[in-house]
């Protein structure tokens, strides 16, 4: 009798230990649609419904999702936009499953047995379907700046410590720029040819953020845009967008080249270089768009060094600093 009681007690204790080890610790997260969602404290099987905005930040925070949206290359091969360049990971070497492009395959998501789905407002109508599979939180790209999206991803995945390290690294990179360059004395701008006009952004994404965080000045027309804003300017207003240094970007995922962007500028305004101070002084800097339009601390770092190396040591910049 005594032996059987001891056996029973041991069995009960073991059951409690095993079940508590398997019980998933959860917490309540209030997402960007003001929904209170019970999510795992440490999600193990995350599916990300945006590659640039969610998958890349997840990887940088050290969390490998089990599934992600991707894009298709010209030869039909799926890829994570900016994934390989910024993180070294793509579908073929990461164990991340391709779940489709933005018109995703929800059955594929179900097959991955996720314990957390991170969505964007694009999937608001189908949230009930996702919620049937796993807790689903929405990160709103309409209300958050790219780096605020990064913060939300860190919060959801409980990786704020890692985010703090990345932020500290970025701040030291900015200090490096400010130490070498008198940023307040230099006017910069980032522009893109777009359907016959010049497209300008205030500061969203990487390039604009680095330039503003480092303390560079922008043309008044750009400052007049509200933070996060963008606008198309007629080429007749090109003089208002002139700067000491002008940045432009080209798409590497589509195998574009810097020369293609120059040709696009030429198409908008023949001999455009004659109308830009930066261009006349050989200070038109063309960089890959993956760097400038990412939600990535790696991209911030590379962009910071790109800005530093292009502007510091340049005799023209030195001349400006003396003024």
């Amino acid at each position: 009798m005594k032996t059987s009681l001891i056996k029973t007690a041991i069995a009960v204790a073991l059951t409690i230990i095993v079940s508590s080890a398997h019980a998933v610790e959860t917490r309540i997260y209030s997402d960007d649609l003001d929904r209170k969602v019970e999510i795992p404290v440490q999600a193990q099987r995350i599916v990300a419904l945006h590659d640039v905005l969610l998958t890349v930040p997840l990887i940088e925070l050290g969390v490998m999702p089990v599934g992600s949206i991707g894009r298709l290359s010209k030869d039909g091969k799926p890829f994570i936009r900016s994934g390989m360049v910024l993180t070294g990971y793509d579908f073929e070497n990461s164990g991340i499953d391709f779940i489709g492009t933005f018109d995703l395959d929800i059955e594929k998501v179900a097959a991955l047995k996720p314990d957390l789905i991170i969505a964007t407002p694009r999937y608001e109508k189908t949230l009930a379907q996702f919620e049937a599979l796993a807790p689903t939180v929405v990160v709103n790209y309409n209300t958050r700046t790219p780096l605020e999206i990064f913060e939300a991803v860190a919060d959801i995945t409980n990786t704020q410590d890692k985010l703090a390290v990345l932020e500290r690294r970025y701040q030291s990179q900015l200090d490096g720029i400010r130490r070498i360059i008198d940023t307040k004395s230099i006017v910069v701008n980032a522009m893109m040819p777009k359907k016959g006009n010049i497209n300008i952004r205030y500061s969203d994404f990487t390039l604009g953020k680095v330039l503003r965080d480092a303390g560079f000045r922008f043309p008044k027309a750009v400052d007049d845009l509200k933070p996060g804003g963008r606008a198309d300017f007629s080429v007749e207003r090109l003089a208002e967008l002139d700067a000491d240094y002008v940045f432009a970007t080209y798409r590497t995922d589509k195998k574009h080249t810097p020369q293609m962007i120059v040709e696009e500028f030429e198409a908008v305004l023949p001999n455009f270089c004659d109308h830009l101070t930066a261009c006349k002084n050989n200070n038109l800097i063309v960089i890959p768009r993956e760097l400038s339009l990412s939600v990535s601390y790696t991209a911030l770092g590379i962009t910071a060094y790109t800005v530093l190396t292009h502007i510091s040591g340049n005799p023209f910049a030195a001349k400006l600093e003396k003024k």
Binding site: G100, T101, D105
Partner: peptide, 11 residues
């Protein structure tokens, strides 16, 4: 659109 090229979904 759903099954032929899954997980690609053609509307």
């Amino acid at each position: 659109g759903r099954a032929l090229f899954a997980p690609l979904q053609i509307p």
